[in-house]
Amino acid sequence: MKYKKSIGLNIRWHRRIGLSLFFMIIFLALSGFALNHSLGLKLSNTKLSSDWLLSWYGLEQAASDGFELDSGEWLYQAGDNQLLLNEQKVAQCQPPLLSVVEIEQQLLALCNDALVILTAKGELIESFTQLQGLPADLTGLIAQNNQLYLRGESGVQTFDADSLALAPSNISLLPANSAPTALPASIKEHLKDQEISSSISMETLILDLHSGRFFGNAGVLFIDIVGLLLCILAITGLLAWVNNQRYSKE
């Protein structure tokens, strides 16, 4: 009688857990199979191209707009906070790239969090960041009569690129010197190539789904729980079988 009760309880929980884990067991088995044969299935060579998946992984989509310089070169942002001059990475700053000004053999690029000062060739002279005193509410950088002005929500300030000094100004500013326009096809193509070559592989996606990492900490926790339930499934199955053996002997 003792064994019969125990068998019933184990079978009941075994059934409940088995049913609730049905789809997860199938998924984990198939994804594990795929990962085991990753080489043969060429999963690591298959790159993700879905915009949704790439943005889920935090990979920025290739830039489409930039600022054309007098020299015909392009200054724009792409990828991981990178500021690029044509195909050359010149600095890092947070998007969006608000303004670009060419003045006295220097290029000045105003990003969301910093004002990047470059030589005409694109060498980084320095970045003036908000932590160093750059106002946080800036909307544009304008050169007027060889003087630089920073326009912000709280007003206009003159800016000296050598001393990084700011001073309030009452000047009426002209519109921005330049506005972002569509990047030429050659640069877009280069960015697309870069994006695909550094993209996430199918192997990584399946591995992240298999481990739950795809959904962050919550996903990992969920897979942990599934793992524990699988252990319980095995234990309840074993106990039911052992007790069934004992019950049969009785």
Partner: peptide, 14 residues
Amino acid sequence: AEILGRSLPELRVR
């Protein structure tokens, strides 16, 4: 660069 173990991109420091 030797101290940092990488090259420095910037040309000047405040």
